[in-house]
């Protein structure tokens, strides 16, 4: 059964039609590359899935059950996690503190509850090990490489046993070596049966990791096919409009 099912999603801001009748279905453990030019409606679609704003029309269901998100925490409660483009990390805090930001573990009883450093270091360390990242829980984020930062942001989504992870341009501004690191992090998520939506401009990254590719143009979905049945040339044509649809 589809973990996420969008049916006929539309969104307009005043007279501007940002999304027109978009339908999309995802299975657990599937990586979908979402591509499109600037203003094609990628971010609008992602923001609707993340609960930032409601669609003007259409429905969202998870595992066959209809869901309505009024705010981002509603989506989070349903197991949808987001890795933001700027990662939303605090440079002045440790890796573990960033993983647990806003969901700190406490220990003690009654009014005498204090931060449980030991448990947070322990669990964060396990998450990094699971992601096969060299990130250490006690290190400050300020001193980390782009790939290690990604690991911290992704470890954060793993805290709550998510069903779907949305990733916004995770490979946009990092070195080649770090891109490889991030792509392997995405594969780790997939191995845990988590569905991943990867928004990216970088064709090679999408082709390296995605199972399926969805192309948006002017608010419409113009292609949705397995990665094996497509090619970078075709996708470029779809994005620019040289190819009508596929």
């Amino acid at each position: 059964m589809a973990i996420l099912e969008l049916t006929g999603i539309s969104k307009h801001f005043g007279a501007i039609q940002a999304l027109v009748n978009v339908s999309l279905s995802m299975e657990p453990g599937e990586v979908v590359g979402l591509m499109g030019d600037n203003g094609a409606g990628k971010s609008t679609l992602v923001k609707i899935i993340a609960g930032n704003f409601p669609p003007s029309g259409g429905t969202i269901s998870m595992l066959g059950r209809k869901v309505v998100f009024h705010k981002p925490s509603d989506a989070r409660a349903q197991g949808i996690e987001i890795v933001y483009q700027d990662l939303a990390l605090c440079d002045n805090l440790t890796a573990a503190a960033n993983v647990y930001l806003g969901r700190e573990l406490m220990t003690g009883f009654g009014p005498f509850r204090v931060l449980d450093y030991r448990a947070m270091f322990q669990r964060a360390g396990e998450l990094f090990a699971e992601l096969k990242s060299e990130t250490r829980p006690r290190d400050l984020v300020r001193r980390m490489s782009g790939g290690q930062r990604q690991a911290v942001a992704i470890a954060r989504t793993r805290l709550s046993e998510p069903k779907i992870v949305l990733m916004d341009e995770p490979t946009a501004a990092i070195s080649v070596r770090q891109v490889a690191e991030v792509l392997s992090l995405i594969r780790r998520l997939r191995d845990h049966n988590i569905a991943v939506i990867l928004i990216s401009h970088r064709m090679p990254d999408v082709f390296a990791v995605a199972d399926r590719i969805v192309v948006m143009r002017r608010g419409e979905k113009v292609a949705d096919k397995p990665i094996g049945g497509s090619s970078p040339e075709e996708v470029t044509g779809l994005i620019t409009g040289a190819i009508e649809n596929a």
Binding site: P72, S73, R76, Y84, D86, L87, A88, L89, C90, D91, N92, L93, A97, L101, G102, R103, R156
Partner: peptide
């Protein structure tokens, strides 16, 4: 410390 480090991150993580 989180607010001082990155206020947007603090908001997004639900602080």
């Amino acid at each position: 410390f989180a607010i001082g480090g990155n206020e947007r991150a603090a908001i997004l993580t639900g602080i």
